Computed example of a mutant assay.
Amino acid sequence: MKLWALSDLHVGHARNRELLSHLSPRTDDWLIVGGDVGETGDHLRWAFDLLQPRFARVLWVPGNHELWTGDERGARLGGADKLAALGELCRERGVVGVDDEWPVWPGEGGPHTIALMALLYDYTFAPAGMTRAAAVAWAAEDGVVAADEVRLDPSPFADIVAWSAARVRSAAARLEQARARPTILVNHWPLRDDLIFIPRVPRYRPWCGTAATRDWHRRYGARVVVSGHLHTRRTDWIDGVRFEEVSLGYPREQRPGMLADAYLRQILPEPTACTTARAIA
């Protein structure tokens, strides 16, 4: 029995759907889907209908793309309303969602709480001291304009910073109750700014997470931290904790000829070798 992870499926791209359709069944294993499956409920339905029969259990956290405002079967949804609707979709499909009871891994290595989180971003990964407006302007100087600024509605919160703060408080309270066993922390956005490796768009940093979670791997007894968002697959080690970036990404970012199975990242049991690993002091 193994725990796998894959994020940033972006199934709105036909090439990604074709690639994913060839995933081998692993009916004894669990799969973490780390966000950015697509932009609509139908994208999630397609992905879950593909993945559910191939894995014993599927777990999901949202990314920014899922949370973009859009029409969902007759209703225009954004913000917390869309997140709630996608949570209901998960339950209909038998998928464990971010606001459901956190599952406990029963496999090799002993019980681990798999903490499924949606912590968003708050511009604190921009250079120190920048306000939101300054961070957006700083990114724009280098030609970086984030779609989230127009497509991600934080309602009913005043802004994305307030929504992120609320999600951080809620997740921290749940993690305090989960201290009895080690954790696997799962969030679409990376938990630390020193994990950001996006050489093509280095000034995209403001939309990549929140500084509030920098020490969560230590504070909450993490064995592994799983994230996506950056589309730069890698393994990092910090304080003896393994951090996995598990993106599939857009078709242009994939390796020619690489099969879908090769994109799955093993989370537990710990693999004997981790590729593209680096240690961060």
Rank of each mutant, 00 (worst) to 15 (best):
P106A: 13
A139H: 02
L195T: 15
V136P: 04
M130E: 08
R76L: 08
V37S: 09
D236K: 06
P251V: 05
V136D: 03
F243V: 07
A165N: 14
P106M: 02
P53L: 08
R15P: 01
P25A: 07
G41L: 11
K2C: 15
V98R: 10
A135L: 09
F48Q: 06
I184R: 00
E141K: 14
A222V: 06
A134H: 09
F197D: 13
L175V: 08
W105K: 07
M258S: 01
A171P: 01
V96W: 03
K82A: 12
A5W: 03
E101N: 05
L195F: 10
V136N: 05
R91D: 07
L20Y: 13
L59R: 10
L116S: 10
L259Y: 02
H112S: 06
G240D: 11
R91A: 09
T131L: 03
W68G: 09
I267P: 00
L264P: 04
R234A: 11
G143T: 14
H231V: 07
H188I: 04
K82T: 03
L191A: 03
L23G: 06
A133E: 15
R203N: 13
P111N: 13
R278D: 01
W189A: 03
D28W: 01
P62I: 00
S164T: 11
V58C: 08
E72R: 12
T213L: 15
N187D: 13
T69A: 12
R17I: 03
L3T: 03
W4D: 07
P190R: 00
R218Q: 13
W237N: 04
G74A: 07
P127R: 13
G70H: 15
I184N: 00
L77G: 12
R233D: 07
H10K: 09
R205W: 12
F157G: 04
R200M: 13
L6Y: 11
T27V: 11
H229M: 04
T131P: 10
L120A: 07
L20S: 13
G41I: 04
S7A: 15
T27W: 03
V201D: 12
R73T: 11
G240V: 10
A137D: 13
